[in-house]
């Protein structure tokens, strides 16, 4: 019989297995390599010194004392924000949730800052 050109005949069970494994490998590699920027931990500084370091796996609230009063940092899985601050202009509060490694919220009047750390931040260093 002349070969019908049915492509399905050429696809043996093992071929399908290897095909699926190949696709899975690509998807896995994509998730692993392109996840860049996902934060691992939050670093809270008060008056220039590290006040607390918290991993972003569970929710918690941290009250940080400063010259004007307490700044409240709220941490949820994968993100963090300044929930409340006694500063006059509320810039750090209005920044909202920080979700990327390297993101910073600074409450200058109360000398508190919140930084997300992780591999693959958007910049090398920051000075202020």
């Amino acid at each position: 019989m002349r070969p019908s050109g049915a492509w399905r005949e050429s696809l043996l069970p093992g071929d399908c297995l290897i095909l699926v494994a190949g696709v899975a490998l690509c998807v896995f590699a994509g998730f692993d390599l392109w996840r860049g920027g996902a934060p691992d931990a939050a670093v809270v500084r008060a008056g220039g010194r590290i006040f607390a370091e918290a991993d972003l796996s569970r929710a918690r609230r941290i009250a940080v004392p400063g010259p004007l009063g307490a700044t409240v940092i709220e941490i949820e899985p994968g993100r963090a924000r300044v929930a409340a601050d006694p500063g006059p202009r509320q810039y750090c509060v209005r920044q909202g949730w920080l979700t990327r490694a390297g993101a910073v919220a600074i409450c200058a009047p109360n000398e508190v800052s919140l930084t997300l750390t992780g591999r693959g931040g958007d910049f090398d260093s920051l000075s202020y």
Binding site: G14, D15, I18
Partner: peptide
């Protein structure tokens, strides 16, 4: 029987 040219190729 199980692995043909498609497996080899990939």
């Amino acid at each position: 029987r199980w692995f043909g040219p498609v497996s080899h190729s990939i």
